[in-house]
Each structure stands twice: as C-alpha cells, then as structure tokens.
Design a protein around this nucleic acid. Structure first.
Length: 472
DNA sequence: ATGTCC
C-alpha cells in the first residue's frame, strides 16, 4: 500500500485499481496500521471504489478492521450522482453512541458514598448479554413509538425533560424512521432490552474531570475541573444487530440488479435513491431511535440513583452516536450537495456557529464524546471550523488486539487489582468481558486524540478519568 | 457489537 505523508497527522492512500477517490488516513506514524495489520488500509481503499463517493475515503486515528468498512471509517456519497448507502458503513450496532452527564458534585464529596453509589448503579442499570431492561414493554405498539420517536418518547413518558432533548443529536430522534422496516424478529429481540447497557466495550462510568483544555467551551458544556460526571456508552442491542443483518441480506441479493460491483462482499450497497437504499435508511433510523431511547432510559435510571445517594440528580451534556449514516448537505467544489455521510466508529463534530447546534452550544461547538478503554480516561472534544472528513473525528481508543487475543493475554486477577490500585470501583463485569476489554487491548486514547487534533479534525475540551465502572 | 452459528 503506497502511503504519502501530507502532514505528520495526515496520510494519503494513492488511487489504484478501481478507487474513485484517494484514501485519507488521519493518524501519526506510530498509529498507522502496518505489516500484518494493513488490512484496515485495504478496507479504506475498498471503500474508495463505492459509486458516488465524494472527496476521499477517510479513516480516523482509532481505525481498525471492521465488517466491510474499517471501524473509524468515514465516507460520503453524492445522492444525486448515483451515491450508494452500505450497511457495512454503519455497522451492526446501529447508532451506538455516548451520553455524558454531570452531577453538581466534586470528587471529594463522592468518596464517602462511592461503594453505595456503585451498588445502586449496579442494581439500577441493566447490563450484560441477553435480557434485563428498564422497561417492560406493553407490546409491539409501544415499540413502534420508540422506533419513531427515540428519546422523545422516553421523555414523553416521564424519563427526562425537554431540556434533555435540546442536548441530543437530532433532538432525540432521527427523522423519517420506518418502523415497518424493522423485522418481527428484530422487534422480538429488542422487546426485553429497552434500557440496557449490553456487553463488550459498553459501559457506564462515574468519572471526574482531571484536565480542562478549553475553559470557555468546557463552561458552555457545563464542565469544570474536579466535576463528577457519568458517561454511558451503549447502542441498539439485538434489535439493531438484527436490522443490519436483515438489510445486508436483501441489499446483497439486489446488487446485480443495480449492476453494482464491489471488491468485498461485505461492502454490499444500494443506491440511496432506490427502494432497497431507502428501506435500509428508514430501518436504520428506527433502530437508531431505539438506541436513543435506550440511553435516555439509562440516564433516568442513573440519575435516580445519584439523587437518592448524593442528593444531586444528573444533567445532560450531550448525546452523540458514532455508528450512523446521515443525509447531510455539504459544500463540495463550491456547490451545495446532498451527501449520505457514513460514520462508522467516527463521531460527527460540528464547529461553533453551525446551524444544527442548539443555541446554548452555538459559541462552543458540538460536544464530541470519546470514551477511552476501560479504567483509563475519556475525552470531551469539539468541532473546528473547516473540519475535514465532513466534520468527523475519532470515536474511542481503537482496538489493537482482537477479543480473542486479549482474552488469552489478560490475567483477570491482576487486572482487577490494577484497577483497584488506581481507585476504580468495578461492578458487574464478567471475567471474560473484563479480559477482552483490558486496557492493553486498546491503543492509548490520548495519542489518538492528539492525532485527531493534529489532523485538524477537532479540539480538546476536557479529559475525564473513571472512578467507578459498571460493565456487562 | 451480537441469543459470539438458524
């Protein structure tokens, strides 16, 4: 793979084969995939062959191998020029994302009640694979409301306030959702999981702000040094997974009818303006809304525990997803164009003054929430004017070991002791889950964030470190 | 990520 260094944080994959545009990788030399691990770069090149792709096939510094697209991949296709949508460009966990909350507390006030707080969160926040949820649904009718209205429906039912919706991407619900596009089987899988964390790298963490890099933006976000926060990272559970599976299958079957050929079958796609393309986007929006409702319900559950234990409820900073395709208008070559922007393991990062920001955030930009690996640290970033990759940045630390490798390499007892020594109270984690999520399995999130900032994708606002974690 | 294979 021929890579050209454009800047210390920006590399170009030169066009070759059927690539329609170059690949642009935002990373440092140290973070670049190499040797055996060049597979994610091949995926960047594969994505560059998609019909209608505009600008470049982008990769964020936390990139690693994924289904079809790399995780950390961003690709925009031009809807009016035959642009396609590919479920592999969103991933199986549709609208997986992060919600950040603040408590009006400093770390010192937390320590005396810490164990009790974590016990409360462990009981109130369903976690782990399979069932267990905040809501027991009355039936499929109520599911339709969730799929259409997302966080708005949860708020309507008393699990939050209108102010919360101001601080949610898309005001709490993706428009044009088509609940009928979510199969019966997907609904069945989702019925018992509304308001649950799941497993893998999903978590709820109690965190403390240890560094403020941008005082003004932090203030606008409601963050200050030594502030207690809660970060929730979860997605659309079995419902989103099944929705992706269903639509990959139908789109794959129709590929030849649209005379579409891709270098990897996992890049199955359909023109945005086709029955299959629109059907996927409608179902994806519905699954995204399930994920939004999920995080709204977990906020309510956690807030209640905080209010009971500390006397302080939680307030929403922002909710943003990092697995989604969105129809957005961007200026390309001096022209306004309608693009289908795929962000898979990549986060939207709107700059200050962007019209889609709520008034309270207009001056600061959109909060970008970047969870680090378990027990290390997380970042709050914001968008910058002229941000590349259609206003996108990284989404996390990025795996460097497979789950299998990590499970084999980790001594769970030592890891637990290490976390305890660092002052992190752990609840609910299975031994296997803990091993797979060991910090050694991930890149250093600080290095990733440095590269994203160096590449001109975003700006640092604050760094948060965990003091408590609930995991599946 | 995921009832880690319908």
């Amino acid at each position: 793979m021929k890579l050209t260094e454009e800047t210390p944080y920006r590399f170009r994959v030169e066009r070759h084969g059927d690539m329609r545009v170059p690949g642009i990788v935002f990373a440092s030399r140290a973070l670049l995939p190499s040797g055996e691990t060049e597979k994610p770069l091949e995926q960047v090149a594969n994505v560059a062959t998609l019909p209608g792709i505009t600008g470049a096939s982008y990769a964020m510094p936390d990139m690693h191998w994924g289904y079809g697209f790399p995780i950390g991949g961003v690709a925009a296709t031009d809807v009016r020029r035959g642009g396609v949508v590919s479920p592999g460009g969103v991933g199986f966990d549709i609208s997986c994302g992060v919600r950040l909350l603040t408590a009006d507390l400093t770390s010192g006030a937390l320590s005396p009640v810490m164990e009790r707080l974590m016990d409360g969160l462990n009981r109130a926040v369903p976690h782990g694979p399979g069932r267990g949820a905040v809501w027991k649904l009355s039936g499929p009718g109520e599911m339709t409301a969730i799929l259409r209205e997302g966080s708005r429906y949860a708020v309507e039912r008393g699990y939050g306030t209108d102010n919360d919706l101001e601080r949610c991407e898309d005001h709490g619900a993706v428009g044009d959702a088509v609940p009928e596009g979510v199969s019966e089987r997907a609904v069945r899988r989702g019925l018992g999981q509304v308001g649950s964390l799941g497993s893998g790298n999903h978590f709820l963490e109690v965190q403390v702000v240890t560094e403020v890099h941008d005082t003004k933006a932090a203030e606008a976000f409601g963050l200050r040094a030594d502030q207690v926060c809660v970060m929730i990272h979860c997605g659309s559970r079995g419902l989103g997974h099944q929705t992706c599976t269903d639509h990959v299958r139908t789109i794959d079957r129709r590929m030849s009818r649209h005379e579409l050929r891709v270098p990897d079958r996992q890049l199955a796609c359909a023109p945005v303006d086709s029955p299959e393309g629109r059907a996927y986007l409608g179902a994806m929006a519905a699954a995204a809304n399930y994920s939004r409702a999920n995080r709204q319900l977990l906020q309510a559950a956690a807030s209640r525990v905080f209010a009971d234990t500390t006397g302080r409820p939680l307030e929403l900073v922002y909710d943003i997803s990092h697995n989604l395709a969105k129809l957005e208008t961007h200026e390309v070559d001096g022209e306004r164009r309608e693009l289908c922007v795929h962000r898979k393991g990549a986060t939207r990062a709107l700059p200050p003054g962007h019209p889609d920001l709520p008034s309270g955030l207009a001056g600061a930009g959109q909060p970008v929430l970047v969870p680090g690996s378990m027990g290390t640290s997380s970042y709050v970033l914001t968008g910058v004017p002229g941000g590349a990759a259609f206003h996108s940045t990284c989404h996390g630390a990025g795996r460097q070991q497979s789950r299998h490798q990590a499970a084999r390499a980790t001594r769970v007892g030592e890891l637990r002791a290490e976390l305890r020594e660092r002052g992190v109270v752990v609840r609910g984690a299975s031994a296997r889950g803990l091993a797979e999520e060991a910090p050694a399995a991930y890149k250093d999130v600080s290095t990733v964030v440095e590269a994203a900032e160096g590449g001109g994708l975003c700006r640092k606002v604050a760094r948060l470190v965990p003091v408590g974690v609930v995991k599946g």
